[in-house]
Deep mutational scan, measured.
Amino acid sequence: ENVFHPVECSYCHSESMMGFRYRCQQCHNYQLCQDCFWRGHAGGSHSNQHQMKEYTSWKS
């Protein structure tokens, strides 16, 4: 089941984030949609070496 997250992806700027959401544990307010995370995208001061937390629902 695809879950809708009402936040913007920090890389592709999609405002309709579906599926899993990934939030960086080091960068303030840096979040990736499932597609950008799986493709290994990073931007700004974010590094792929940073720990990311996976969210499967909006409330989590």
Rank of each mutant, 00 (worst) to 15 (best):
S57K: 11
R21S: 14
S16M: 10
V3I: 11
C36L: 01
V3T: 14
G44I: 01
C36A: 00
H41K: 13
Y11T: 06
G19H: 11
S57D: 13
Y11D: 04
F37E: 08
E8I: 08
R21Y: 03
A42N: 09
Y11F: 12
S45W: 04
M17Q: 11
Q25P: 03
C36Y: 01
W58Q: 08
S47L: 04
R21V: 06
Y11K: 06
H46K: 08
K59V: 08
F4E: 13
W38F: 14
W58Y: 14
V3E: 12
E8C: 05
H28Y: 09
H5V: 08
T56P: 14
D35K: 11
N2C: 04
V3N: 14
S14L: 07
N29W: 06
E8G: 12
V3S: 14
V7R: 10
K59R: 11
Y22R: 05
S16L: 12
S10E: 03
Y30H: 02
P6N: 12
Q51H: 04
G40I: 05
C12Y: 00
Y30S: 02
F4K: 09
Q25C: 08
E1Q: 04
E15K: 10
W58V: 15
K59H: 13
C12E: 00
N48D: 10
G43D: 15
G19I: 05
V3M: 13
H41A: 11
N29I: 04
Q25D: 08
N48R: 06
Q31D: 11
L32A: 01
S45V: 05
S47Q: 10
E8Y: 07
H13T: 09
Y55C: 15
H13W: 02
W38D: 15
L32S: 04
S16C: 08
N48K: 05
K53Q: 12
L32H: 04
Q49D: 14
Y22W: 09
H50Q: 02
M17F: 11
Q51F: 02
H13E: 05
F20W: 14
H5C: 10
Y55T: 14
S60A: 03
Q51C: 07
N48M: 07
R39P: 02
C9K: 00
Q51L: 07
G44K: 06
H13D: 02
C33L: 00
S16I: 14
D35R: 09
C9T: 00
C9L: 00
K53P: 02
A42V: 11
G43L: 05
Y55N: 07
C12T: 00
H50Y: 02
S60Q: 15
S16N: 11
S16H: 06
D35L: 06
G43I: 01
H13V: 03
V7C: 11
G19P: 12
C24G: 01
Q34I: 00
E8M: 04
E15H: 13
G40V: 05
H5S: 07
R39Y: 08
Q51W: 02
M52H: 00
H50N: 02
S10V: 01
V7D: 11
S14D: 07
N48H: 06
Q51I: 11
S16D: 11
C36E: 03
M17W: 09
S57N: 04
N48C: 09
S57H: 14
S10I: 02
Y30A: 03
Y30V: 06
H41R: 13
N29S: 09
C24F: 00
Q31K: 04
Y55M: 14
Q31A: 09
E8R: 05
Q34E: 12
Q31G: 08
Y11A: 06
C33Y: 00
K53S: 08
V3G: 05
F37M: 13
M17I: 12
C24L: 00
G40Y: 14
N29H: 09
V7H: 09
H50T: 02
Q51E: 13
S57V: 11
G43S: 13
G44E: 04
Y11W: 07
K59Q: 14
H5N: 15
G19W: 06
M52C: 06
S57Q: 09
C9H: 00
V3C: 14
N29Y: 06
F37Q: 11
C24P: 00
W38C: 15
N29L: 08
F4P: 08
K59P: 10
N2K: 11
V7T: 10
S57R: 07
C33N: 02
Q31F: 14
F37T: 03
Q34A: 09
K53M: 08
M52R: 01
Y30T: 03
A42C: 06
A42D: 05
K59G: 15
Q51K: 12
M17S: 14
K53F: 04
G44H: 01
Q25R: 07
S16K: 11
E15N: 12
H46M: 06
W38K: 15
H41Y: 08
K53A: 07
C36W: 00
S60G: 13
Y11N: 05
R21G: 07
N48V: 12
C36S: 00
E54F: 03
M52K: 01
H28T: 14
F20L: 14
N2D: 02
N2F: 08
C27Y: 02
H50W: 01
H28A: 14
Q49V: 10
M52L: 05
G43H: 08
E15F: 07
Y55V: 15
C9W: 00
T56A: 12
H28S: 12
M17K: 14
C9F: 00
H46C: 03
Q31N: 06
M17D: 12
Q31M: 06
C36H: 01
N29C: 15
V7M: 09
W58D: 15
R21A: 11
C24A: 01
G44L: 01
F20T: 14
G19K: 14
H13C: 06
C33P: 02
Q34D: 05
Q49N: 12
Y55E: 14
F20S: 15
M18G: 13
Q26L: 04
H41Q: 14
K59W: 09
M18Y: 13
E15G: 08
W38L: 15
M17T: 13
S10M: 04
H50P: 02
G43V: 04
Y30K: 02
S47A: 04
R21H: 15
D35Q: 06
H50C: 04
M52G: 02
Y30R: 04
Q26H: 04
M18T: 13
G19A: 15
Q49W: 04
M18S: 14
M18V: 14
Y22E: 01
C12G: 01
S47P: 06
C9I: 00
H13F: 05
N29T: 05
